[in-house]
Structures are given as C-alpha cells and as structure tokens.
Amino acid sequence: MALWTLFGLTSGKATTPWPKDGASDGQDGVLGMPRYNPSLCQEGCEECAAVCPTHAIQLQDGGLSVDYGRCVVCQLCTEACPSGAMEPSHDWAFGARDRADLVWSNDRMNHPAANRTERKAFRRSLHIRHVDAGSCNGCESELQALNNPFYNLHRLGIFFTPSPRFADLLLVTGPVTRAMFEPLRAAYEAMPEPRWVMAVGTCAVSGGIPGGNYACGTGLEGVLPVDLYLPGCPPNPSAIMQALLMFLDRAPQRVRGGQISG
C-alpha cells in the first residue's frame, strides 16, 4: 500500500461538516469587515475617512457614510479611529443579493429580502463559470481553496465548469479591465437561460483599489446585471461558500443595511 494512501486512511476525514452548526469554518481569528458604531463617533472627527484608500468611508450630512461594497478590509480605519467607532471584527459573511445591503444604515428593517427569481431546480446542483476580469489573483487563491479536502465544495453539489455553455452562474473577479470587457460579455451571452452573475471581491463589486483608472472600470456596475455581491479583499473560502448557499436559498443572508446578524 502506498504511504500516502496509508496516511489518508489513518488521518481520517479532513472535510469540515460546516456549515452545520458547531462545525469549524476554518476562519478562527480571521479579521472581517470593520464594525461601525456611530454612537461612538466624535463630532468633527474625519480620521477614518481620511485614511480609507477606496473612499468606502465618506463624510455625509455631518456624519459618516460607510459602504462595505467598497471596503478592502485593510483595517486602516480601525487603526486611525480614536474613539472605537470603527473597530475590528470577524464579520466576514457579507454576501448580499441587493447592493444597498452593503451600505450601513441605522434602520435594518428598511432592507427586507430582495425579490429574486425562483431557483428551486438549482438548490442541489449549481455549475459555475469563473471569469477573471483583471484580478490580482487574491480572489483566485481563495477560489482554489474551495476544492481542497477541508472545504470540498463538491459535497454541496456546487461545481466549476470550463465552459459558459454549461454554467448556471457567472462568477466574476477583478475590476473589469478594458481588455476583459468583451470576453466577459461573450461568456455571459454564451450561457443558457436562466443565467445569473456573482461579483466576488471588492474589485468586482465596485472597482476596489484600481477602480476607475485608465485601464479598468469600477467592477460589474453597468456591465452585467449582478444577482449576488460579495465584497472582500479577498473574501475567504467560507464567505464564498456561504454566499453561494445563500444564493441557492440554502443559507440565510446575514448582512442587511451593512450590519451582520448573529
């Protein structure tokens, strides 16, 4: 018997039962989106907005506007904030069907579940075509981890396919460079109906750090209709899995009005 086979048999099953309750998601200690506590804001303070590299935090009507769809999770705001209004957190499950849910709001009740096309036929099987539209490969590294023994995405009935003709969901990473605009459109148009689009990573959601420069746009906004948004730089494998399961109505959407539910 080969040594690697013996090692596998003696080591046992490596795949996590997550997302079952109590199982490890593999993200212990991993920082997520900064948590905004407006009650702790000091009047006239602009420290967090001044250091934000993507203008995810802006001054607006005497207060702060926080758009997690633009956040690259750099934590600069938490380091600069003198009052704790922006604090580190482990809030990484930021998948949302509605772009507005990524913007912080005082009233989460004004952000009900978005209307969506029924997907009962796809709840147990989903085929994904991934297109890198100018990514730095950070998101690709996390996507590759989905097929390792720990996450084992296939156990959930979710598969990547090399052809858009066999895909249900187009998963896009990167800010959509000028050179990738037409190939991206071609991939989308080659998909059979019904077809959906998922923006993975802050670049695909809003452009990220390079967004709007001479070589690229500001993500998928105005390029393709987006059915699922997942910011992060990059979003971790568990965040991607949770968003995919949420898309299939097999997991709840945890973020509304820029705030994570327990």
Rank of each mutant, 00 (worst) to 15 (best):
M1C: 12
W4E: 15
T5C: 04
T5W: 14
F7K: 10
L9V: 13
A23L: 01
S24M: 06
S24A: 15
D25F: 07
Q27C: 00
D28A: 06
D28E: 08
G29D: 03
P34H: 02
P34G: 02
N37G: 00
L40W: 04
G44P: 00
C45N: 07
A49C: 05
T54R: 03
Q58N: 06
L59W: 02
G62I: 14
S65T: 07
V66N: 03
Y68T: 07
Q75V: 02
L76H: 10
C81W: 13
S83D: 12
G84R: 07
E87Y: 05
E87W: 01
P88K: 09
D91I: 05
A93Y: 15
A100P: 00
A100E: 13
D101N: 11
L102C: 01
V103W: 05
S105G: 06
M109I: 08
M109Q: 12
N110S: 04
P112V: 07
R116D: 10
T117F: 07
R119M: 05
A121S: 11
F122R: 10
R123E: 13
I128Q: 00
R129M: 07
E142R: 11
Y151R: 10
H154P: 00
L156H: 15
G157C: 02
I158R: 07
F159L: 07
T161F: 01
T161H: 06
T161G: 04
P164I: 06
L170N: 05
L170G: 09
V172E: 08
R178D: 08
A179W: 00
A187E: 03
Y188D: 04
E189D: 15
E193L: 14
P194H: 07
P194C: 03
M198G: 07
A199K: 06
S206R: 05
P210E: 13
Y214H: 12
C216F: 05
P225G: 06
P225K: 13
G232D: 09
G232M: 08
N236A: 02
I240E: 13
Q242F: 03
A243M: 11
L244W: 10
L244Y: 13
L245M: 14
M246V: 14
D249N: 15
R254M: 15
R256W: 11
G257W: 09
G257F: 04
